[in-house]
């Protein structure tokens, strides 16, 4: 059982809601993923198109807990104002806090992130910061009051998988009691399984499912990979070694002779 800010969850897969070919495809993919949390955003609403009103109806039908993000915010001030709009709009104190530093890498601005996390925590938000694998930033975020951390695996939408495994292992070892969710850069179910085998608590992804040839089937594949990875972590993985070690018992091998001549 995964606990995030007091919420108990069975699924360790969090799913984004963007890039699906249709609302029906999104609905079926969320269902197949078993996700109990879906990420959402907020955008300017046109008086004519009223796009957001229809989308909200769909989200309500899904019956999932929503995790609004502050995607696209470039400063702490923008992220704080966006988080407050999201809190009112979605009726949740949870916020996936994003402060973006660079358009090409979409990497988090760690300074702005800590600044915004500090303010938002003081104002009663439960902050899930989209961060990097940087240990010092993680320490600052925890000191700011974040009870969950969401380090990236790789840049958003890149499908590169766990680029810096060493640092991610360090982060896991350093924060044994803080829920850590790998957020962004996951491309394949094996990436997700690997993160879970390393002891990460959950995985958040979007593009790898939404842009798959068959998003519904891929959602199921990710659900199985995340569950398998978690099971493997709980079971305890063996350590890799350089030399072979026979799996079949050596004792009693037929035709075996000790060379007495030497």
């Amino acid at each position: 059982m995964l606990t995030l800010y007091g919420a108990q969850l069975t699924s360790r897969l969090l799913l984004g809601t963007a890039h699906y070919s249709s609302p029906e495809c999104l609905r079926l993919a969320v269902e197949a993923s078993g996700a109990e949390i879906v990420t959402v955003s907020l955008r300017r609403e046109s008086a004519r198109a009223r796009t957001g009103q229809g989308f909200w109806g769909l989200i309500e039908e899904l019956g999932c807990r929503v995790l609004p993000n502050t995607a696209g915010c470039r400063t702490a001030k923008e992220a704080i104002a966006t988080a407050k709009m999201a809190r009112e709009l979605f009726g949740t104190t949870w916020i996936k806090l994003e402060v973006i530093a660079n358009d090409d890498t979409l990497q988090p601005d760690l300074f702005g992130l800590v600044e915004a996390a500090t303010v938002l925590t003081e104002e009663g938000f439960e902050v899930l910061p989209y961060t990097t694998e940087d240990l010092s930033a993680a320490e600052r975020l925890v000191a700011a009051g974040c009870a969950v951390l969401m380090p990236w695996a790789a840049p958003i939408g890149s499908a590169r998988g766990l680029i810096n495994k060493t640092a991610l292992k360090t982060l896991r070892a350093y924060f044994p009691d803080i829920p850590l969710i790998i957020d962004a850069g996951i491309g394949t179910p094996s990436h997700a399984a690997e993160a879970m085998e390393m002891g990460y608590d959950a995985v958040l992804l979007n593009t790898a499912v939404a842009k798959a040839g068959d998003p519904v089937k891929m959602a199921e594949a990710f659900a199985k990979a995340v569950a398998a990875g978690r099971l493997a972590f709980e079971a305890g993985l063996i350590e890799p070694r350089d030399m072979a070690s026979p799996s079949t018992p050596v004792a009693g091998t037929p035709f075996f002779k000790i060379d007495h001549a030497s």
């Binding site: 809601t17 890039h19 999104l26 959402v40 796009t51 989308f55 993000n69 962004a184």
Partner: peptide, 10 residues
């Protein structure tokens, strides 16, 4: 003035 509404997000 900003007027925003729910939208898809990752």
């Amino acid at each position: 003035i900003e007027i925003v509404a729910p939208r898809q997000g990752g």
